[in-house]
Simulated scan of single mutants.
Amino acid sequence: MPGDVNGDGYRDAVLPAPGANVAGKAGAGAVVVLYGAKSGLSASRRADITQNTGGCRAPPRRRTASMPRPRRPI
C-alpha cells in the first residue's frame, strides 16, 4: 500500500523537521514518521529519524547557506 512505511497495512505519514536539534547541533534536522492504525495516525506511535539514528553514515550537522536546499516533491 502506498504510504505504508512499516508494512502493517495502514498508511503512515513521513514529515520533515528541518529545524530539529540533533546531538547539540542546532538545525541539523530530522524526519518524523507517524504510524497509522485503524483509528488513523497516532502521535504516540512515531519514529524520529536523524543522522544519529542507527544506519545513518554522516554525523549531524547544521545546513549552511552553501548547502543546497532540499527538493520538494511535486
Rank of each mutant, 00 (worst) to 15 (best):
45 R>M: 05
45 R>V: 07
30 A>P: 08
58 A>S: 09
41 L>K: 12
27 G>Q: 02
70 P>A: 06
44 S>L: 08
35 Y>V: 05
54 G>D: 13
56 C>H: 14
23 A>I: 01
27 G>K: 03
47 A>I: 09
36 G>V: 05
24 G>R: 00
25 K>E: 08
25 K>P: 07
56 C>P: 09
32 V>L: 14
52 N>E: 15
27 G>H: 01
29 G>C: 03
23 A>D: 10
23 A>R: 08
42 S>D: 02
68 P>K: 05
55 G>H: 04
50 T>S: 12
69 R>T: 11
57 R>I: 12
25 K>F: 14
29 G>K: 07
57 R>G: 14
31 V>S: 11
53 T>N: 11
46 R>Q: 12
48 D>T: 14
54 G>Y: 13
33 V>A: 06
52 N>A: 14
46 R>D: 09
68 P>F: 01
30 A>G: 00
40 G>Y: 04
19 G>I: 05
21 N>R: 10
43 A>D: 14
44 S>V: 13
56 C>Q: 13
26 A>C: 07
57 R>C: 11
60 P>E: 06
42 S>L: 01
67 M>A: 06
24 G>H: 01
22 V>R: 00
61 R>G: 02
24 G>W: 00
29 G>F: 01
41 L>F: 02
29 G>S: 07
68 P>E: 02
22 V>L: 09
39 S>C: 10
57 R>L: 13
49 I>M: 12
41 L>E: 04
56 C>I: 12
20 A>I: 08
21 N>C: 15
34 L>T: 05
66 S>Y: 07
48 D>A: 15
41 L>P: 02
19 G>W: 07
27 G>D: 03
49 I>R: 04
70 P>M: 04
40 G>F: 03
55 G>I: 06
43 A>Y: 15
21 N>P: 11
45 R>P: 06
66 S>M: 04
56 C>Y: 14
28 A>P: 00
37 A>K: 01
40 G>S: 09
40 G>H: 03
26 A>N: 08
38 K>M: 12
31 V>F: 08
70 P>V: 04
34 L>H: 04
62 R>C: 11
64 T>S: 11
43 A>F: 15
63 R>I: 11
38 K>N: 10
37 A>F: 01
45 R>T: 08
61 R>V: 04
32 V>P: 06
58 A>G: 13
64 T>F: 05
67 M>E: 09
27 G>W: 00
26 A>R: 04
55 G>E: 09
38 K>F: 12
65 A>I: 10
36 G>W: 03
